[in-house]
Design a protein around this nucleic acid. Structure first.
Length: 261
DNA sequence: AAATCTAACAACCGCCTCGGA
DNA sequence: TTCCGAGGCGGTTGTTAGATT
């Protein structure tokens, strides 16, 4: 038995929003707010739409100060950097980009940025995005040699690492002085494991288990299957070595930042 | 000019989490 | 403590406009 739908799909309009619907929704929300209940909102506002649809339309399109398109180089770097840190946590990534929505960032990544990085081999660092390492607790002796990609480049032997060595935070430039949650919101644990390959061929090349570390295994595997010894792959490993386990803070900030992301 | 392809983005779907009853 | 409904989220699909053949 399936899950009960959130609304009567037979009696709600679907598809693109008309300007009239937009105006109705916007007007209602500006006057009344959500009233804490999106589900009942369309009825109150006189819209034949699902509450979820109204919410999405408002958040992704009608909300004030929304920016569409025209991502800057800096935003590109931030997205790439954060994606490499936390994977497809689009809402968290979008939170670092004022005026951007998770849907926007997600679409932009899927249609442009992903291809751009795959083709260029340039994997932006957090430094590019205005971050710099503050405490290098575990990485100072790391090198690509730490990664056992001689047996298969897509597989990183993480067994030597222990969660206790992990104390990773990043701080966004935009969050200086903010009251963001503590580092637990981005706590990275070590559930992610890598599976060694027996032969090293792409066909049995093993799979990077989805990691709560946030390192996007699918993306990494894309890179590595593309060319196991490519500069991209090397950059990727270096990137991981550089930033996977360090505390980060925006460049130019004082050491005593307490509001960590 | 028509057909096809591609990129961009809007919208939907369904699962998960959380808070209140 | 359990249940249920609403909100939030990420993945996926649909639509459309522009480019290319």
């Amino acid at each position: 038995m399936g899950r009960a739908p959130c609304c009567d799909k037979a009696n709600v309009k679907r598809g693109p929003w008309s300007p009239e619907e937009d105006a109705t929704l916007k007007s209602y929300l500006e006057t009344h707010g959500t009233g804490g209940n999106w589900i009942s909102l369309p009825q109150k506002a006189g819209l034949k739409r699902c509450g979820k649809s109204c919410r999405l339309r408002w958040l992704n399109y009608l909300r004030p100060n929304i920016k569409h398109g025209g991502f800057t180089e800096e935003e590109d770097n931030i997205i790439c950097s954060l994606y490499s840190q936390m994977g497809s946590r689009w809402s968290l990534i979008a939170a670092q980009l004022p005026g951007r929505t998770d849907n926007d960032v997600k679409n932009y990544w899927n249609t442009k940025l992903k291809k751009k990085i795959l083709s260029s081999g340039a994997f932006p660092t957090l430094s590019d995005a205005g971050y710099e390492p503050v405490i290098s607790s575990t990485t100072q002796n790391w090198s690509q040699n730490h990664f056992h990609y001689s047996s298969f480049p897509g597989i990183v032997d993480m067994s030597e690492f222990h969660a206790s060595s992990m104390n990773s935070h990043i701080v966004s430039p935009s969050q200086e002085g903010s009251t963001m949650s503590d580092s637990s919101s981005l706590a990275m644990d070590y559930k992610g494991l890598s599976l060694p390959s027996t032969h090293g061929g792409p066909e049995d090349g093993g799979i990077l288990m989805d990691s709560e570390l946030g390192f996007p295994s699918d993306f990494v595997n894309d890179l590595l299957f593309q060319d196991r010894e490519s500069e991209v792959a090397a950059n990727c490993f270096q990137y991981f070595a550089d930033y996977g386990y360090v505390d980060m803070k925006p460049q130019g900030l004082n050491q005593g930042v307490t509001n960590q992301y």
